[in-house]
């Protein structure tokens, strides 16, 4: 706490978002009961509020607005359908209610509306998935174009000796692309999981499945730069991945 139990010294960083959680809490508790510190806050606020404009404004691509308003309109439709559904649910007697043909038609329309929304949401999920894939490809291309990127053989063990793979990585970065082929397609509920091993500690960095030809890929995003890990490895795990490897290593590559 700054001197004399005031928070004046912290206020510039409060406005800049540069206090930790404890300090922020202290400032927010102090301000309502201290006119002196509030005056400092008001004196500095104008300067801090200008800072966002220090970044050059860049119009987002049309996709951003389109995706946003697809979500907004889906939200409006879902809320509207939910409101109508609630209104219907409060009717005392469904049977009597439905005897009126216009209401039956309204109910049928509502059901159609709900089904349409569900369909739209499912389409939205597919679009989101495609966006994620495109983004992943974009990151992979960026990785491939970096001069510091290296390619390491991902070698199969005796468990699946026909498997082949390559790990494309910039060891100073957190991301790597693992491409494999010749792996056995797995039954439902099973996945391949990639691991990075630091000392004796394996860290799960993602799961994937292979297609009918045994081909698969995963974009790894490690919690630390890749150079801190010694080994990358692959195991078979239950869907959702495991906290630690539960089966034998199928493929691996040494970083150093």
């Amino acid at each position: 706490m700054p001197r004399e139990n005031h928070v004046e010294e912290w206020i510039p960083f409060y406005l800049l978002g540069g206090l930790d959680a404890y300090e922020t809490e202290m400032v927010e508790k102090h301000l309502p009961r201290c006119a002196q510190c509030r005056a400092v806050l008001e004196d500095l606020r104008g300067g801090a509020q200008a800072l966002p404009y220090a970044a050059r404004p860049i119009p987002p691509s049309p996709r951003v607005k389109r995706d946003l308003f697809n979500r907004v309109h889906a939200d409006l439709r879902a809320n509207s359908a939910a409101s109508q559904a609630r209104a219907i649910a409060t009717s005392a007697n469904w049977f009597d209610w439905l005897r009126v043909p216009s209401r039956a038609v309204a109910l049928a329309s509502l059901i159609l509306l709900v089904l349409s929304i569900a369909w739209a949401l499912s389409l939205r999920a597919q679009v989101d998935q495609l966006h994620a894939q495109v983004n992943e490809q974009r990151v992979a291309l960026t990785l491939l174009s970096k001069p510091s990127t290296v390619t390491k053989d991902f070698q199969a063990t005796a468990v699946q000796p026909n498997a082949r793979g390559q790990l494309i990585a910039d060891l100073s970065d957190h991301r790597a692309l693992l491409v494999v082929s010749g792996l056995k397609p797995l039954p439902q509920g099973r996945v391949y999981e990639a691991w990075l091993i630091k000392g004796k500690t394996p860290v799960g960095v993602g799961t994937f499945v292979v297609d009918a030809n045994g081909v698969g890929q995963i974009l790894i995003n490690a919690p630390e730069p890749l150079r801190v890990y010694q080994i990358a490895a692959l195991t078979e795990e239950p869907e959702g991945g495991s906290a630690l490897p539960t089966t034998s290593i199928l493929m691996s590559s040494q970083f150093n």
């Binding site: 966002p52 404009y53 220090a54 970044a55 050059r56 119009p59 987002p60 691509s61 951003v64 607005k65």
Partner: peptide, 28 residues
């Protein structure tokens, strides 16, 4: 405000795709 918001996000993240995701999430 979207252009200014993207400017802020881009300056912090230095990667356009992520910055645009942030803008969309902000307005959402």
């Amino acid at each position: 405000y979207a252009a200014s918001a993207l400017g802020v996000a881009l300056k912090i993240l230095r990667e356009r795709a992520s910055a645009e995701d942030i803008v969309q999430e902000t307005f959402w």
